[in-house]
Design a protein around this nucleic acid. Structure first.
Ligand SMILES: [Mn+2]
Ligand SMILES: [Mn+2]
Ligand SMILES: [Mn+2]
Ligand SMILES: [Mn+2]
Lengths: 143, 143
DNA sequence: GAAAAATTGTAGCCCCTGCTACAATTCGCC
DNA sequence: GGCGAATTGTAGCAGGGGCTACAATTTTTC
């Protein structure tokens, strides 16, 4: 199948997707929580992801290294401009995937769960197809 | 959104999906390679996934612990019955996702890549929706 | 304003997945 | 039969992501 690509391309890409997954989910969550509560603390993320605050602290250390987050000791987290941009992009993707799953008949609960994983593995092209089909199915609704 | 579930449910599920991801991809690959070459060696998997043979050896050690694979030192890999069943299930899911992406207009190359990640995050319900829509779109082809 | 509670940080542990370097074994070929 | 190549195994390293236990700091409460 598909003669001019290797299996390794596919798996390399999946591994690379996973490496960026935490970053995307974290900055999106930080942005969310800031919007809802005015600020985002480590404990807020720990509760959202159901992990210990230590796990969050270590993840945040990495996001700082990558220039997505800033913070001073014992203070709430802030997003850098790059962090805000990634959050916006992550949210757009998340919404498109979720709305698509809903449009093709997946329940709210299941769509929410599946979206959280799928969103990190959809290329631009696939996302466009999702968007287009969501529109089409909505127009079709009456049928 | 979706009032009676927590964010943590979604992320817990995604983490659990990832834990099973390696197992599914490996047994599927072993089954593939056995079918094509008569046997599957460590080096075959290393080439397919584009990782070192050491990485494969360690992953295989885990699959042995989990009862999916057996092998003797310096000998080719064998699947247990459980391994074969998981491989079959993984292949079914893989095919459904791939055919679905193709049906909604994604190119062969991109569909092959995206499928490799998405397949691990589609619940049964979503898979059913994929299948149904694939059928519908194929009938619709003329439109 | 001090004690208690909540939050954050740090030390140290685990497993998974990646690697290089090197040793052991098997395979292929003369 | 043996030698070189291919394959597999092992030692030791790194980073990501999970944890508990405990210390430090901030926030809340009285
Ligand atoms: Mn996610
Ligand atoms: Mn994934
Ligand atoms: Mn896969
Ligand atoms: Mn697959």
């Amino acid at each position: 199948m598909t003669s001019r690509h290797t299996f390794s391309d596919r798996h390399r890409r999946t591994r690379s997707d996973h490496a960026q997954e935490t970053a995307a989910d974290y900055v999106e969550a930080i942005d969310d929580i800031q919007a809802a509560e005015g600020r985002c603390r480590v404990i807020d993320l720990a509760r959202r992801f159901d992990v210990s605050h230590v796990t969050v602290t270590k993840a945040i250390a990495r996001l700082k290294r990558e220039g997505l987050v800033t913070s001073e000791p014992y203070r709430p987290l802030e997003l850098t401009e790059a962090g805000r941009q990634l959050a916006a992009k992550a949210r757009r993707t998340h919404t498109i995937v979720y709305e698509f799953l809903r449009a093709i008949g997946v329940s709210e609960q299941v769509a929410a769960i599946d979206t959280e994983g799928i969103e990190h593995h959809v290329s631009r092209q696939t996302l466009d197809c999702f968007l287009e089909l969501t529109q089409r199915l909505r127009g079709d609704q009456s049928a």
